[in-house]
């Protein structure tokens, strides 16, 4: 079972070039119905039919959770990726019909928080746009610190300052760099929760700084970018199904399993949620563990794999599917 088993038919209502690397896509229900309500931090899975290839990528919803007429996502173009973002940028235009999943939230606000402290890097801004709309509607105190490489790449910076005023502080690497995390995290009211979404280094820095300052782990929330890496083609044997499947260079193992019609759980499609954890029956070779889920012992044991992001190189890989 997974959210992407039950897709919602939508039409692309608008495509906006936000800057040289980011486009925003807006979706409406194909029959004009209301789309499901959601909570800030939720993502949808967008199904992309690119010739004979079917890709499914997860993107955070950035529209207001109170807006049921349409959804909006932003996609950063990654020319070295598997082609999903390239497909979105090059092939998707207004009027096109697509399928999306219902929203899934793996990065929700902790509604007990006395204050929400949000730290975004680059395209990691998108879930916070929805969360700020939610916090502001609920009257919950929040503060966003948003860092980008250059002012030209800082998507939505101006409009966020217009919408949320002093709650938003912006930083650009070409104009003084990001926030002083130690200073920021050492002076927050009791009951504050911190949320970070951005590049790996930023997430690690926030988690480490907060932990060193004595923040409880339950008050530190993070979301990694969700995108499976490309790699070399490989083949896999699915033991229960009794079939061999081929995984293409720009296809994830999860997508190849799905294409074979074999049931597999999944949610985030980005190695973070743990749902697709699969037992390895035989591994004669090396697994490239690209996930954030398995611990070091599990990786070393070669007994587990996260098919949504991880790949294989070697003689034979047999999975318990």
């Amino acid at each position: 079972m997974s959210a992407s088993d039950h897709l919602i038919p939508v039409v692309v209502s608008k495509v906006v070039e936000v800057n040289s690397i980011i486009k925003r896509f807006e979706f409406k229900h194909i029959h004009g119905n209301e789309l499901p309500a959601f909570s800030g931090g939720a993502h949808i899975v967008v199904e992309m039919l690119d010739g004979s290839t079917k890709r499914k990528n997860a993107y955070s919803l950035m529209s207001s959770p109170f807006e049921r007429g349409q959804y909006a996502i932003s996609v950063r173009r990654d020319d070295d990726g598997r082609g999903g973002s390239k497909f979105m940028h090059e092939k998707v235009e207004a009027g096109m019909k697509m399928n999306i999943s219902a929203p899934v939230n793996l990065f929700s606000l902790d509604l007990r928080a006395r204050k929400h402290l949000m730290i975004a890097g680059g395209i990691g801004i998108t879930p916070f746009i929805a969360q700020m709309a939610q916090a502001s509607e609920l009257g919950a105190p929040f503060e966003l610190h948003y860092a980008a490489r250059t002012a030209a790449q800082a998507a939505y910076m101006d409009s966020l300052q217009d919408r949320f005023g002093d709650n938003v502080t912006c930083y650009c690497d070409d104009a003084g760099g990001g926030p002083d995390l130690a200073e920021l995290l050492s002076d927050q009211p009791l009951g504050t929760h911190v949320y970070v979404c951005g590049p790996k280094g930023m997430i690690e820095a926030v988690v480490k700084t907060a932990t060193d300052l004595g923040w409880p782990a339950a008050h530190i929330h993070f979301e990694h970018f969700l995108s499976p890496p490309v790699g070399q083609a490989f083949s896999v044997h699915l033991a229960k199904a009794g079939i061999d499947i081929a995984v293409g260079p720009e296809q994830s193992l999860l997508e190849a399993i799905e294409a074979s019609g074999t049931p597999v759980n999944c949610l985030c499609r980005g190695g973070a949620c743990g749902q697709c954890e699969t037992r390895v029956v035989t591994c004669d070779g090396d697994i490239a563990h690209n996930d954030h889920w398995l611990d070091d012992d599990q990786r070393a044991s070669k007994q587990f794999i996260m098919p949504c992001v991880s790949r294989f190189r070697g003689e034979r890989l047999e999975l318990d599917l």
Partner: peptide, 11 residues
């Protein structure tokens, strides 16, 4: 618990 944590909307 694992099942419930992943329970999707509308299902």
């Amino acid at each position: 618990l694992k099942f419930l944590l992943s329970l999707p909307q509308g299902q």
